[in-house]
Nucleic acid binder design. Structure first.
Length: 298
DNA sequence: AGGGTATGGTAAT
DNA sequence: TTACCCTACCCTC
């Protein structure tokens, strides 16, 4: 389940469960034995999350870098733990909780220069307070690749994966094939806010939640006063389900979901809600203005 | 038992 | 663009 929200949630959970106490660290699978040996008996003070990367700040300036990749998983159990089952790359045992890591792409100590290079490869992460949305806007302006490929590029925006790509573009009514630079700055800012909100909700609720602004939906009951357009609802609709990702039919309109490969992954899009060439409806001032949303990750 | 699939990313072609 | 890596789970045979 690893997109940005999962990674930030893990950082919070691991600080809560394991920080500031000496940990028993081992590598049952045997692929990170040296890393485990160095960290064994040490404590970490905090965990920094950048996009899909985790950085555990251990004593003595030691940093453990973890990237889950597609298959990586953390599992938690009460201490003392059961004997490891399966391919456990790293086991961290604290006084109350034990966390096992399996399937990760990266699980190793990194030096400051390597970390610098890593962070240089990442664009702004909407879940971080220090994120600058204008870097995202500027990056889109520079790219002729489809918007659906651009937001999967971690250098453009860090933390978005295939689910959020499908869902965010759908919520904003954007055709994934639209060239990134044709989105326009205002709509790019709206898209940033959509993704920031979805990611933040995902951290809080431990799952992907989409929130659709229903303002453009005509009110079915009642009649519009003469001379005025149809009345619209201003309420926001929360969906604890995806709208298009891995669905056959669109959750909003019921029409068939279209799929095709883009940037090495399958795109899911609703041609009715996201017509060809669409950059989405004009942003309303309420959505386009104001400071970028932030999340207190205290 | 074996195959297909998955929310990711890199390196080679 | 493709090949390949990492692991678990679910389906079919």
């Amino acid at each position: 389940m690893p997109e940005g929200h999962t990674i930030h949630r893990l950082a919070l959970d691991h600080v809560r469960d394991l920080a500031r106490q000496p940990l028993q660290v081992s590598s049952p699978q045997g692929r990170a034995v040296e890393t485990a040996r160095v960290l064994d008996g040490r404590a970490f003070a905090k965990v920094d999350a950048y996009g899909k990367h985790l950085l555990y700040r251990f004593e003595d300036e030691l940093t453990l870098h973890v990237h889950l990749g597609l298959f990586g998983k953390f599992r938690r159990q009460a201490s003392p733990p059961e004997p490891p089952v399966g391919e456990k790359r790293l086991r961290m045992v604290g006084d109350r909780w034990t966390v096992d890591l399996s399937g990760a792409v990266a699980c190793a100590l990194i030096e400051p220069d390597e970390e610098e290079a890593l962070l240089a490869r990442l664009g702004p992460d909407p879940l971080r307070r220090d994120a600058d949305p204008e870097r995202f806007v500027a990056a889109l302006r520079r790219r002729s690749i489809p918007i659906g490929a651009a937001i999967m590029d971690q250098k453009v925006i860090a933390g978005i994966g295939n689910v959020f790509r499908a869902e965010a573009l759908h919520v904003d009514g954007i055709d994934p094939l639209l060239p990134a630079r044709e989105l326009g700055d205002e709509r790019a800012r709206v898209l940033w806010r959509t993704m920031a909100k979805m990611l933040a909700d995902g951290v809080r609720e431990r799952r992907i939640v989409t929130i659709r602004d229903a303002r453009d939906k005509p009110v079915t009951a009642g009649r519009a006063p003469k001379g005025e357009g149809p009345r619209t609802r201003a309420d926001r609709v929360r969906h604890k389900t995806v709208h298009v990702y891995r669905r056959r039919d669109c959750h909003d309109c019921g029409g068939p979901v279209e799929t095709y490969p883009m940037a090495g992954r399958t795109v899911y899009t609703c041609p009715a809600c996201q017509p060809a060439g669409s950059a989405g409806p004009s942003p309303t001032p309420a959505l386009a203005d104001g400071p970028a949303p932030t999340l207190d990750l205290g």
